[in-house]
Design a protein around this nucleic acid. Structure first.
Length: 483
DNA sequence: TCTGGGGTCCTAGGACCC
DNA sequence: TCTGGGGTCCTAGGACCC
């Protein structure tokens, strides 16, 4: 078993992954956009600039996806519950997020990176590795001064092209060190790790700098008296494997020594597609759950089809009221992208589970993906999935007439033609569109619909009101800082 | 009303095959 | 005469990442 990432079954292949020995030069660049979602919001809505902004779930069970640096001052962090964030920073703007816009801005950044090198490995919308050893225009050398200049140039181009979103960059002789380096001078910083100094950089730091070392591993290592990377170096490979398992243990042994030759790999294929939702109140009605799974299956099918994919293994995820999480899956004889088939299997899998204590989350996923779609005989036949576990016959061809709640984020229930807004504490709508006054009605999670209020456009209270529909242009119109 | 949503990778056990 | 292995596929759960 080779536990390290590989270039794929075909071995070294410049198009998919450049396999280098442990590098003598700092030729791996890691770029991380600073507080990305919040930064995009501040870019597009000048009234938010310099103010705390929190992007994430705004409902009672929401969590923070990104907090602007102004919000971090108050202790707001990613993954914190929004409830907690509100108590720490009540005056922040709480926004649900505009992922279409984040994707668009991310694509601009990734395109810039690909001008530098074809070997760009995005990790998420806001992060990527770039292999400078495979640069399109070969660098005169890969010395620290040269790569630093390239990194600074890249940061400037990203800021320019995104309308002011800043990036932090780390450059080092491996992915691991490049990523560590990009964290060192955040935000808006650049750190080059001189080859030969990697281990000195790591030794004094907490083990949690190592990717893959989360709360559970930190706790296990703590019991072994290991806190820093230097401590970790004291453990033998066999001891680590015994404590943490083969892959994780062997991987940590190497990373503790800055031994990381994982290649930068462009274009990794997706392995699964899923949709899941947490509900504001726990579900107890099985028919409602089936209806929600059916709708989620439709969402999965749409995304499969959008990408020309199909999959064989259908999974559901059920989180009970006490947060225990169950999963069930069934593998079909052939891949499908058919929403009715996915829904039928998903509902059948739910039938096996006891949900009497209430369900806070439901999800549907598909894995075992193929980039082709087989003519779906099962879907054509309508019902028979003989042999497929989890497919049960109780779901009739006619969908149960269950009334579903509106999809997450849908501006349902607002008078037609109004501009729906989100405010920090809930929802409201704006119907005045004049430049000097807007009229806002608030409906919050905690209170019934509030009174109608009119605001002068430059009223500071308006920074709480963020249009999510219909279009960003409308936002500018309501933006109090633009008159 | 503590604890999202999208993923990835790993482990362990059982079935099944040679 | 029990007591093999190796390999693959599948399932459920868990850790982790952004």
């Amino acid at each position: 078993m080779h536990g390290e990432a590989t270039a794929g079954p075909c071995g070294p292949d410049p198009a998919r992954g450049y396999v280098a020995p442990v590098r003598a030069h700092a030729s791996v660049l890691h770029l991380d956009l600073d507080a990305f979602f919040a930064a995009v919001e501040q870019r597009d809505k000048p009234s938010l600039r310099g103010r705390p902004v929190v992007v994430g779930g705004t409902g009672g069970r929401g969590v923070v996806a990104t907090a602007s640096y102004e919000a971090r001052v108050y202790g707001v962090r990613s993954a914190m519950s929004t409830r907690e964030a509100r108590s720490r920073c009540p005056h922040a703007a709480y926004l649900r997020g505009r992922f279409e816009e984040y994707r668009r801005t991310s694509a601009v950044v990734m395109a810039i990176l690909r001008e530098v090198s074809p070997l760009v490995e995005p990790l998420s919308l806001d992060e990527a590795f770039v292999d400078l050893a495979a640069a399109t225009v070969p660098l005169p050398d890969l010395g620290p001064a040269t790569v630093r200049a390239l990194g600074e140039d890249l940061r400037a181009r990203v800021r320019e092209a995104t309308g002011g979103v800043t990036a932090s960059v780390g450059i080092a002789s491996s992915k691991f060190l490049a990523k560590v380096a990009s964290e060192l001078d955040k935000p808006d910083g650049l750190v080059v790790v001189d080859p030969g100094t990697e281990r000195d950089l790591l030794r004094p730091r907490h083990v949690s700098v190592i990717p893959g070392v989360g709360p559970a591993t930190v706790e296990r290592l703590r019991r072994l008296g290991v806190h820093t990377v230097a401590d970790l170096e004291g453990l033998g490979a066999d001891e680590l494997v015994r404590e943490l398992g083969q892959a994780h243990g062997a991987g940590l042994f190497r990373l503790a020594r800055a031994d990381d030759d994982r290649p930068v790999v462009a274009e990794r294929d997706a392995k699964s597609v899923s949709v899941e939702d947490t509900y504001e109140t726990d579900l107890v009605d099985r028919r409602l759950m089936e209806g929600l799974l059916t709708r989620q299956a439709g969402g999965v099918a749409t995304r499969l089809r959008d990408h020309g994919l199909s999959g064989r293994t259908v999974s559901i995820k059920v989180r009970l009221a006490d947060f225990t999480t169950l999963s069930r899956s069934a593998t079909l004889p052939s891949p499908t992208d058919d929403p009715a088939t996915l829904a039928r299997v998903a509902r059948g899998l739910l039938a096996d589970l006891d949900t009497s204590t209430g369900v806070r989350l439901l999800g549907v996923g598909v894995s075992g993906l193929a980039d082709w779609v087989q003519e779906d005989l099962f879907a054509a036949a309508g019902a028979d999935l003989s042999g497929a576990p989890g497919a049960d016959g109780t779901a009739t061809a006619a969908e149960p007439p269950v009334e579903l709640p509106p999809p997450r984020g849908a501006p349902v229930g607002w008078p037609p033609g109004t501009d729906v807004v989100h405010d920090v504490h809930g929802r409201g709508w704006v119907w005045g569109s004049g430049r000097s006054v807007v009229t806002v009605r608030f409906e919050t999670a905690d209170t019934p619909p509030g009174p109608v209020r009119s605001f002068a456009v430059d009223d500071p209270a308006l920074h709480r009101v963020e249009a999510v529909s219909p279009a960003p242009a409308t936002v500018a119109e309501h933006d109090p800082s633009r008159r």
